[in-house]
């Protein structure tokens, strides 16, 4: 009887060990903190200004975004460069 009690116990320990020590697909979850960055124009070095829209560099016409923005969550149609 003692032997029967022992078998499941040790198996559970093994299952737990296997569960927590194996590699997860895509690697462990890395918690990222909030951050603020800017993307300057890689062509002429100018910054992106709000009034000039998000899609095209106001100075050299470099395309930051090659799509037409629609009305999304916080990004809106008005954010397309003219």
């Amino acid at each position: 009887m003692e032997e029967a009690d022992k078998t499941p116990l040790s198996l559970i320990d093994r299952l737990k060990l296997k569960a927590v020590t194996q590699k997860s697909y895509g690697g462990a979850l890395v918690e990222q903190e909030a951050k603020l960055t800017v993307r300057n124009c890689p062509n002429c070095g100018a910054g992106r200004a709000k009034d000039e829209g998000l899609t095209i560099c106001a100075y050299c016409d470099f395309e930051f975004l090659s799509v037409r923005l629609t009305d999304g969550i916080t990004i809106k149609k008005e954010n397309n460069s003219n």
Binding site: L65, S66, G72, I73
Partner: peptide
């Protein structure tokens, strides 16, 4: 399939701000 997000978004010509909104919507 394990392709880096930056590579995928660059190929589409978008940034993560645009993708994340599109994805949620």
């Amino acid at each position: 399939a394990g392709v880096a997000e930056n590579d995928v978004l660059s190929a589409l010509g978008i940034e993560s701000a645009v993708y994340e909104e599109a994805s949620a919507l």
